[in-house]
Simulated assay, not measured.
Amino acid sequence: MTQPEDDIRQALNALIESWNTHDPEQLAASFTQDAQFTDVMGHAAEGRAALARLHVMPFARLFNSAELEVEQAPIKLVSDEVASVNLRWPLRGGATPQGAPLPPRAGVMHVVVVRRENRWWPTIPITPHLLRARA
């Protein structure tokens, strides 16, 4: 693995760790200021403040005890400043809005990562759909 790939993986790990805190502000801080986020339901947010607002209800009700992981994250360096990552994730511990447990599920998040301020930052994550529920 190359140094940029190691640094990108570090940024992605920080993203997953921040998601697992269930703190919308901490999650938003792991992205660029001008991030454009699209979730699995197609809801979009632009900028850290909007990204944090988008996650208030899900973290409070749906994912407050959920754990997100990374199964696989192939990295394609587009340039010295831009990379594309297809991050495969499993999720355990989600709940319905009524509080009933959901089965584990998995999906793919496509993430554009950029190099700014001497580090790599996720800037455009898109989770187009769930791949499957897991038994």
Rank of each mutant, 00 (worst) to 15 (best):
W19D: 01
N20G: 06
T21Y: 02
H22K: 11
H22T: 02
D23G: 00
D23C: 02
P24M: 10
P24H: 08
E25Q: 13
Q26M: 05
Q26L: 07
Q26S: 04
L27V: 10
L27I: 09
A28H: 02
A28L: 10
A29M: 13
A29V: 12
S30D: 04
Q33C: 00
Q33P: 15
Q36E: 06
Q36H: 12
Q36R: 11
Q36T: 07
F37Y: 15
T38L: 00
T38D: 01
D39A: 01
D39R: 11
V40P: 11
M41L: 07
A44Y: 04
A45M: 09
G47V: 11
G47Y: 03
R48H: 03
A50C: 05
A50E: 12
A52W: 04
R53I: 02
R53T: 10
R53P: 12
L54F: 00
H55K: 13
H55C: 10
V56P: 14
P58V: 01
P58M: 04
P58D: 02
F59T: 11
F59P: 15
F59W: 13
A60P: 14
R61L: 08
L62G: 02
L62T: 05
N64I: 04
S65H: 09
S65V: 07
S65W: 01
A66W: 07
A66D: 08
E67Y: 00
E67T: 03
E67D: 06
L68M: 09
L68K: 12
E69D: 11
E69T: 14
V70M: 12
E71Q: 14
Q72C: 09
K76W: 05
K76E: 13
L77M: 08
V78F: 00
S79G: 04
S79Q: 09
S79D: 12
D80P: 15
